[in-house]
Simulated scan of single mutants.
Amino acid sequence: MPEAVVAAAARTPIGKRNGALSGIHPTDLSALVLNELVKRTGIDPVDVDDVQWGCVTQLGDQSSNVGRFAVLAAGWPESVPAVTVNRACGSSQQALDHAAFAVMAGQQELVVAGGVETMSRVPLGAARATGQPYGPTVLERYGVVDFNQLDGADIMAKRHGLSRSMLDEYSARSHERSAAAIDSGAFDEQIVPVTTNAGIVTRDEGLRRGTTVESLAKLKPIGRHQDGVVHAGNASQISDGAAALLVTTPQRAKALGLTPLVRYHSGAVSAADPVTVLEGPMPATHKLLRKSGLRLRDIGAYEVNEAFATVPLAWAKDLGADEERLNPLGGAIAVGHPLGASGAILMTRLIHHMCDNGIRYGLQTMCETGGTANATIVELLVN
């Protein structure tokens, strides 16, 4: 079976809600990272077999196969196809899976995987204004009026013994680690500067420096549970962003003069309770480790998406994970979670972190609406 390798990975800064990136159409934001791959690798876009593009809320500005129109916005040849993938928050991580699987199956040799979400322009929950998500039969099956992630986060906190102070301590640490990563230049090489009417954006916008447990303690819970522990400060931020990765075979990379960064080692998907919503990363990771033949202690860094602080904390407790390796650069609580782009953004961060620190194995996992989750391991190939 052919191997799949990632030869380049780039992302935009993550823009805060109604921030600097909000004025850019998602196809144009996507085009920036697509063309950055060309710039970094020197590939001819005409040789790209397919573009797998994640996007969650495919309405309005993000409708009509946003991946295809991103390709056209980038000025790539009309012959380059694209498909838009939706596995909720894991959409662009699933896009990477699709790209790797196509390469490993020997059906394609040069595939771009990535995603976009401009939540400022297409708000979270916009689908509710145009129809009835989930459908009556599913709601009746679970005895609920909807599937609410805030409720799920509170349920999860109670189930795993996570107090509000534990969530807030974790959230303050996310800001601290993100600030340290930004200040050290850890993100500089991976970020594509974005030119806007207000200037050039080169850094993630959402970071709130000086966030403390004390300042977070002043925020009111936002869930429907009276004794809830989830609030805006220990949940991910609404954001805008895009990211892209170039997936190929080692042989094709060599022919193109490219040095692969990581090998796609293994991937898994799983599903859990859709009412709790957020627990999928735990069974997905257990499944992935069984499949990969690796143990968690073999993994040097874990990117567990910070949809809510409950997710990485419960995951670490369940897996017995080393919290020093968990989200070492901070995460979505500090800098944002642009849904359909987040999987590719996290993978881009993870790959560059592995390259910068000589980490052999990295693991990424995402919770997703409906209780599903993706989990992926990549292996470092460069010294």
Rank of each mutant, 00 (worst) to 15 (best):
P81N: 07
Q94V: 07
P45K: 14
N65I: 09
A73E: 05
M119D: 05
S63M: 12
Q94E: 15
A82V: 07
R87P: 00
L96E: 03
P81C: 15
V56K: 03
D49S: 15
T84F: 01
G75M: 06
V85F: 08
A88S: 14
V112C: 04
A105C: 12
D44G: 09
P45Q: 02
S63F: 15
V71N: 00
D49P: 15
G54F: 07
T118H: 08
M104S: 14
V71C: 01
V85I: 09
D50P: 08
A70G: 07
N86A: 13
S63Q: 08
E78A: 06
C55N: 09
D44M: 05
D97Q: 12
R121E: 15
F69M: 08
A105E: 07
T118Q: 07
A88M: 04
T118K: 05
E109K: 11
W76R: 00
A113S: 06
S63K: 11
S120C: 07
L96I: 12
N86I: 04
W76K: 02
L110K: 15
A113R: 01
G67A: 02
V46T: 10
S63A: 08
G54A: 01
A99M: 14
T57H: 11
V51N: 00
L96A: 15
L59I: 09
S120R: 07
G90L: 04
D50C: 08
V122G: 04
V51P: 00
L72A: 03
S91H: 04
T118E: 12
S91V: 04
D97A: 09
E117Y: 05
N86P: 03
V66Y: 05
W76Y: 02
V85T: 05
D50A: 07
S79R: 14
S91A: 14
V85L: 09
Q93W: 01
F69R: 02
D50I: 13
A70E: 02
V83C: 06
D61Q: 07
W53E: 00
T57M: 13
S91Y: 11
A102Q: 09
T84S: 10
N65L: 12
R121F: 05
A100R: 09
V83R: 07
A102R: 09
A88Q: 13
G60W: 08
Q108C: 09
V111L: 12
G60F: 13
S63D: 14
V80F: 04
G115I: 13
F101T: 04
Q52W: 02
V103F: 13
V51D: 00
S63W: 10
V122Q: 08
Q62S: 01
E117A: 15
G54L: 01
E78V: 05
V83F: 09
R87F: 01
Q62A: 10
G67V: 04
G114D: 14
S92R: 03
Q94Y: 06
G75R: 05
Q58C: 06
P77R: 07
P77I: 11
A88L: 15
C89L: 12
V103M: 10
R87V: 03
V51G: 02
P81K: 12
G115C: 03
G114S: 10
